[in-house]
Amino acid sequence: MVTETPLEAEVRRLAGSVPDPELPVLTLEELGVLRDVQVQGPGRVTVHLTPTYTGCPAVETMSADIERVLHEHGVPEVSVVTVLAPAWSTDDISDEGRRKLAAFGVAPPRPNRGPDGPVPVTLSVRCPHCGSTDTELLSRFSSTACKALRRCVDCREPFDHFKEL
């Protein structure tokens, strides 16, 4: 990253600004799935993308969207490569991404790696509607692979929780 040129930074900004196809409030940059951008030559760019889940069907749409945006900005040759390692984690979602998720009605993931210390801290999942921390798990699986279904005990509303990975 220390060798990133101004052109690469601009391409990265463009690719990173593409919205997630399933959670359009988040950009790919905020989701943390954009791994690397390399300018291979004049008009030739390679973008490294990592899937949230191995079977995530949104990856193909993300790749097509990145290609389209870069084409529109004058990059004729765009190659999007999927990389698996290091594995994506919900810790890769930015703070701004977490804020947007909550505003959208999806409880953001709790940190996997808490502050350094011997005792792991388990935080409760906060209801994105009323803010109550008294919520219960309905199902570990929900509308997409990355979410769990919960219900707020106080306001009784069900909600999606971006589950920790």
């Binding site: 191995t54 079977g55 997409t144 692979a145």
Partner: peptide, 20 residues
């Protein structure tokens, strides 16, 4: 319904592994 969604999600994860 919750199990319908859960089993389909597990199937999708496995399909991703299989494709890779």
């Amino acid at each position: 319904l919750e199990e319908e969604v859960a089993l389909a999600n597990i199937a999708l994860d496995l399909l991703g592994q299989a494709r890779t």
